[in-house]
Design a protein around this nucleic acid. Sequence first.
DNA 1: TATATTTACGAAAACGTTTCAGTAAATAAA
DNA 2: TTTATTTACTGAAACGTTTTCGTAAATATA
Lengths: 343, 343
Amino acid sequence: MKKKNNKKNSIQDIAEALQLSPATISRVLNNHPHVHESTRSKVMTMVEQVGYKRNIMASGLRTNKTNTIGLIVPRISMFVHTEIITAIQNGLHTQGYNLIICQSNDSLEIEKDLAHTLYASRVDAVIVACTLFTSDFSHFDILTQNDIPVLFYDRVPVKPYPACIIKGDDSRGAYLATSHLIELGSRRIAYISGPMSCNIYIDRYAGFQQAMRQHGISIQQELVFYHELTVDNARKTLHKLFAREPYPDAVLCANDLTALTVLSFAKEKGMSVPQDLRIVGYSNDPRSSIVTPSITTVEQFPGRIGNVIVSEVLKLLKNGYDMAALDTTPIVTPVELIRRMST
Amino acid sequence: MKKKNNKKNSIQDIAEALQLSPATISRVLNNHPHVHESTRSKVMTMVEQVGYKRNIMASGLRTNKTNTIGLIVPRISMFVHTEIITAIQNGLHTQGYNLIICQSNDSLEIEKDLAHTLYASRVDAVIVACTLFTSDFSHFDILTQNDIPVLFYDRVPVKPYPACIIKGDDSRGAYLATSHLIELGSRRIAYISGPMSCNIYIDRYAGFQQAMRQHGISIQQELVFYHELTVDNARKTLHKLFAREPYPDAVLCANDLTALTVLSFAKEKGMSVPQDLRIVGYSNDPRSSIVTPSITTVEQFPGRIGNVIVSEVLKLLKNGYDMAALDTTPIVTPVELIRRMST
DNA sequence: TATATTTACGAAAACGTTTCAGTAAATAAA
DNA sequence: TTTATTTACTGAAACGTTTTCGTAAATATA
């Protein structure tokens, strides 16, 4: 009835079986020099035979390396993040790293908790896309202060923080989208932004602003809205926006979910898109291409972002992390406007 | 230039600072009885003060528990899996468990590799949705044989395997969908299935079959297709299907991506849905509800599946895993037909 | 008072790996 | 030949916890 099975599978067992010391087995397994070819092959065959797998807890305890990387993300279900995570996970796997994925659900409390948990797990590095509301980053100090490199992407610290930073070119994305609308003839452009506590919405607003200014159009603050980009919030905003004329002739949305909501609202109200109302989203969520009319949006190339993250993480891990020498100037990844039927 | 910072934060450091033994500190941290209230509080304040976090590698080495659970999934980007994973991750987090998420990309080779990696990480349990092509499950033996419980969901072993099994009621889902089509008057029903190496497609076909038989309609094999459910494959199949009349009057698809592809194909060909062609999908992917016409599909309640998985995993971990006493009869979760405009 | 029981703690071993320091044997250099 | 160098290995300590066993003190029981 007892479940313990009798084959143990430690380095020591192999050492005993071969009349060698554990040290030698370890050297073979780690490809150290100064071990004779004949012993090496003897060890390797025995390792194969008993199906030995290194105990990561033991080796991690000794070396302070876990070959595991932590990831904190608001929600894995958000399209861009799903894609980025996939790229990260595949990239790291080929390099022998595991990924512990955690969701903050956009809660600052959970994010703090996760930072501590990942420290307790002694991961080798932590990759973070922070919550919408993270403005104080001191809960990551426990990582940086203990030489665990931190890498922010997408949603990143606005103030200087000793970490690697990778972000999309959000201001350019919004600039392209806005210019596109203006060139098509839109003048009363509404803008639905996320909360300005988050860099991506700060930057997108800046891009919007820049394009408007460049074309000599003044921004009317009653056409600009700031809130979490949920369906409910978007609908409330739309009711305000279309409470009385003059209606806007275009809505620029800081994400695609909002753009989709605007589209279905417009259909309900009998407005035709793009004739009565042009709509632009952000992120190129797959849904934006299959609705009728399809929605113009900004591609962020999440797969490429993931690859950049992987290479930066590996660089940090290879070089030995030196906080003092860390380059904290953001790496900016490109965006592209995708024109579709909604404009 | 050296980066090592001088504050160490081990149990031993706290013990020294308080003139106690490490054993006592450990007992406090683990809420063991027989430690005096005054010492307990002294220890706790010191723990707070220095920001002590348990080193999981050390405690894991000693106890053989990592508080980490492994997850192997074909792709985290598949809607149902995204939702299930989210539920699992949130549920386990509240119980103090971490989740290592791995993607097999539907490759059997990678899946084998991941099973071994997770064993090396000595996770406490492994949750698996296997690849479309996993028919031999022996690569999971290393886990079960070393008392690491394995739990399959959605895509599960067809043959008996010593693991907990949680699956959707796929045959009923397909039965409901097919019956629905028949009741609406469809008689020439095409069925696009995934590869029959995977239980979900076996079961869905069985449900399709049952409904057809029950209504006295014989299945015409030239209307049934088996292949991986990609857009490209679906389009090839559609070209065959509509190469010559008589056309089918309905297409039942084993997933929503295929249903979406059928819809856009129908639009291209000038067929109107549902008048000329009825379409049903499977999984209630969010895209199925926003296209025009919206697509009838089968809801699997991924959130609920995730919760079931969490409670089963916790049960296995709490009770102490006893392979002999393991109940391997599948837990079947309910489905529901969602009627929409495509039928 | 003497004895048994409970409480609060410490000493030390153990988990499985890596690595430093050491050594014997083999080879090269003097 | 002797001495230096290289090669191939071993012994033992260390990583930070947990846990068993032991013990002294405090309390209860006879």
